[in-house]
Amino acid sequence: MPIDSAHLLARPFPAIEHTYTQRDTQLYALGVGLGSDPLDGRQLSYVYEGKDGHSLRAMPTMANVLAYPGFWAREADTGITWQKLLHAEQEIHIHAPLPVSGRVKGVTRITGLWDKGEGKGAFLQQTREITHADTGQLLATVLQLSLLRGDGGFGDGGSPGAPPAPHPMPEGEPDHACEVATPVQLALIYRLSGDLNPLHADPVVAAAAGFQRPILHGMALMGVAAHAVLRTVLAYDDVRFAGMRVRFTAPAWPGDTLHVEMWVRGSTVSLRVTAVERGVIVLNNARVDLR
């Protein structure tokens, strides 16, 4: 049965309040690979509070897990064939530095729905605004683009225009490149920040989905790539990190060595990430926006 595009575009979402602690901030950073060099004080700033208890910083990509509405596509009123949903892109805009602890509010809405045609699926975009629950200050905007592989052909009533075009990659050799070794338990750590999908932990579930082993969360991969830019281009000056957009092109595995290529053009760092051992591009048409 085709989805009801008018209902989906108007679907209300309850505001979500999320209280988190310094420990949650440290756990998120560990889940995207920070602290891999225990002698690097710049990395430790994201996982260790310091002797004064006030040195901790929040990774900008932690916005992805704050006030997250969960996997709402499984709810009956959506009409979405959730078993065939794929996470295609993720984008964040950081409006103010994220507090290392506190209470935030997230409001989600559906901001785009584009029909690719019968048998071809549809694209759905959801947008979440994250504000400080006490002051109302806008902290971050998070956009997620999903491919609804089983829900094309609903006809008129979707959004005008087309889904966002991929970020164009520069020509020529990258300005920077680095390799990041991911620990084999990375997905098991990252899931403790709230994404408990068993695909990332249970070998039986992963096998049923057609994978040789549990795969890494896409947003954990995004955080690993963000760390590569912070380390290589920004010297860990995360105040300059204004936003990030990634396109997921293949699953990454915990334990992969990731080769991150970076092209710096003005205030944009374009990215491509390859899993070295398998020769597979896992992130492409990606960018980090700088202040």
Results as ranks from 00 to 15, higher is better:
Arg247Trp: 06
Gly41His: 13
Trp253Ser: 13
Arg149Phe: 07
Ala201Trp: 07
Val260Lys: 01
Val233Leu: 02
His132Glu: 15
Arg287Cys: 15
Ala15Lys: 11
Gly243Met: 01
Leu192Val: 09
Ala165Trp: 07
Gln43Asn: 09
Leu56Tyr: 02
Leu138Trp: 01
Ile215Asn: 01
Asp4Ala: 02
Pro99Cys: 10
Thr257Trp: 05
Val269Ile: 08
Val246Phe: 09
Asp256Val: 11
Thr21Phe: 02
Arg265Ala: 14
His200Met: 07
Tyr20His: 03
Ala201Arg: 09
Glu17Val: 14
Ala220His: 03
Pro2Cys: 05
Trp263Cys: 08
Leu124Arg: 10
Ser159Trp: 02
Leu216Ala: 04
Asn284Ile: 00
Pro168Phe: 02
Ser146Gln: 12
Tyr28Val: 04
Gly79Thr: 11
His200Tyr: 06
Tyr46Trp: 08
Gly136Ala: 07
Val224Phe: 10
Leu39Thr: 15
Arg74Ser: 14
Leu66Tyr: 06
Glu179Lys: 12
Gln185Gly: 08
Leu139Asp: 04
Pro2His: 03
Val273Arg: 06
Leu66Val: 04
Met169Cys: 06
His200Gln: 09
Trp82Leu: 12
Val32Phe: 02
Gln185Trp: 09
Ala275Asp: 07
Lys84Thr: 03
Thr21Gly: 10
Arg42Asp: 15
Ala250Tyr: 04
Pro97Asn: 13
Glu179Met: 08
Met262Asn: 04
Phe123Arg: 02
Ala162Ile: 06
Asn284Lys: 07
Arg42Gly: 07
Lys120Arg: 15
His227Cys: 05
Phe248Leu: 12
Ala67Asp: 00
Thr135Met: 12
Asp156Lys: 15
Gln212Trp: 06
Val32Asn: 00
Tyr236Pro: 04
Pro163Met: 10
Val205His: 11
Leu143Gln: 14
Val184Tyr: 05
Pro168Arg: 04
Leu85Val: 15
Arg272Pro: 03
Thr78Arg: 13
Gly255Val: 03
Gln43Pro: 09
Gly50Arg: 03
Ala207Ser: 15
Thr108Gln: 11
Tyr190Met: 07
Val142Arg: 02
Pro170Ser: 06
Arg278Asn: 09
Val282His: 06
Gly102Asp: 03
Glu173Arg: 13
Leu138Tyr: 01
Gly33Thr: 04
Ala252Leu: 02
Phe71Asn: 12
Asp115Ser: 09
Val142Phe: 13
Leu39Trp: 12
Met262Gln: 15
Gln83Gly: 11
Tyr28Arg: 06
Pro183His: 12
Leu124Glu: 11
Arg42Met: 10
Ala58Val: 10
